[in-house]
Amino acid sequence: MKKVWQPGPAAFSFWIALVYFPAHDLVRRPSWPDVLGLAVVVAAYLLTVRAAFTGRPRAAVLLLTVLAVATFALCAASGGKWLYLCPVLSIACGVVLRGRVLSLTLAVVTLTSMVITYWRAGGEDVTAAVAAVSWGTFTAGVVVYVTLKLFATIAELHETRQELARAAVAEERLRFSRDLHDLLGHTLSLMVVKAEAVRRLIPRDAEAAAAQAGDIQTIGREALTEVRAAVAGYRGRGFADELAAARVALEDAGVRAVVTLDEVRPAPDADELLGWAVREGVTNVVRHARATRCQITLTGRKEEIVLEIGNDGVTGRGPRPADREHGSDGVTGRGHRPAERGHGSDGSAEQQRQRGLAGRENRGHGLAGLAERAAAAGARFEAGALPGGRFALTMAVPR
């Protein structure tokens, strides 16, 4: 991960150049106590800044205290250009301290510099001198604090953006895997069932086996088309297309479809979600239920559009016609019932066992994926068994 540049000790060490002004006075009027005091100020400032940026807060506070004592002592003793040391002390405070402690410290440092300036300045320009020193001292610490806070915020925002990018990638991977399951899960399970039928039919009826093999080829080609569409960013065929495919699938499965639709125009995202709900709901009816009737209702309400898919196949009623004839793949309606007409013995316990295994592999995953889609879109989703051997799926999308 690329990190944002952060200021370090070098970025603030150069402010020690402000000691040039009192040092210039020392060259003109040498004083060994002042030289020693100025050396203490320079060393304490540089060590304070370094300790603050190397994660040693206690040492930084101790050195800051030494710097403050030396600065005020020199300013009180000499005044004049030595007052340039007050902004140096304020900068060190902005580097080391944070929050309320910094505010109180800057207030104390500023007031102390004002008192010393008033005491040492004298003359008619005392007011201007006090104002200049106090303003320079206070703003130096504030600017340093704001600068460090700004860089810290930038770094935090950068890290947050990186984290959001990683989360978006993970979410997209989850979405794509969910899409592939919804597109191919039931289709592949049907191909397994039909392949088993081909294997069992070859010794008895080559023509019926060839028809089943043709179904597998057709299903495979359509599945490949769906995968390519998904890779290209396609998320679903929409409600109208899925409903048309669902009618064919239910008819092939021997389930009577009762469709009631209000005249509504859902938004593109809502239309896509309703299409997925039809696909998954009707696929579950065809693959897992023993239904004779499936009711699909689309109702337009004030704040939402409600899709309800119900069937009467919760309780066992014996094998469905689709199970006896292997004639449906769920929503896509690609089955051909005549292919096995007259071969009811091949709807045997072994073949139904294979179909049951395929169904158990996928059971629950499709509804879970649909629930995830609904949650992401802010829609309301419910699915479960009802009294009287019925099962209902409800998807309510906001208008």
Rank of each mutant, 00 (worst) to 15 (best):
F14Q: 09
W15N: 10
V19H: 05
V40E: 04
P57D: 03
L64I: 11
A68G: 06
A70Y: 06
T71F: 15
T71L: 13
A76H: 12
G80W: 02
S90W: 02
R98M: 10
G99Q: 11
G99W: 07
V101W: 05
V101Y: 04
S103C: 03
V108S: 08
S113F: 04
M114S: 08
V115R: 10
V115N: 06
G123F: 01
S134E: 07
F138D: 08
F138E: 07
V142D: 08
V144F: 07
L148R: 13
F151N: 00
F151H: 05
I154L: 13
A155T: 10
R161I: 11
E163V: 02
E163Q: 09
R166G: 01
R178Y: 11
H181A: 11
L183C: 07
V193W: 00
A206I: 10
T218H: 13
I219S: 08
E222F: 14
A223R: 05
L224Q: 14
V227C: 15
Y234I: 02
L250H: 01
E251R: 12
R256L: 09
E263H: 14
P266A: 03
P268E: 00
E272R: 15
V282I: 15
T283E: 10
R290M: 14
T299I: 13
V306C: 12
V314P: 09
R320F: 04
R324A: 03
S328V: 07
T332W: 15
R334T: 05
G342H: 00
G342S: 03
S345T: 07
S348Y: 10
A358I: 08
A358K: 01
N362S: 03
R373C: 03
A377I: 00
A379Q: 02
E382T: 12
G384N: 11
G384R: 14
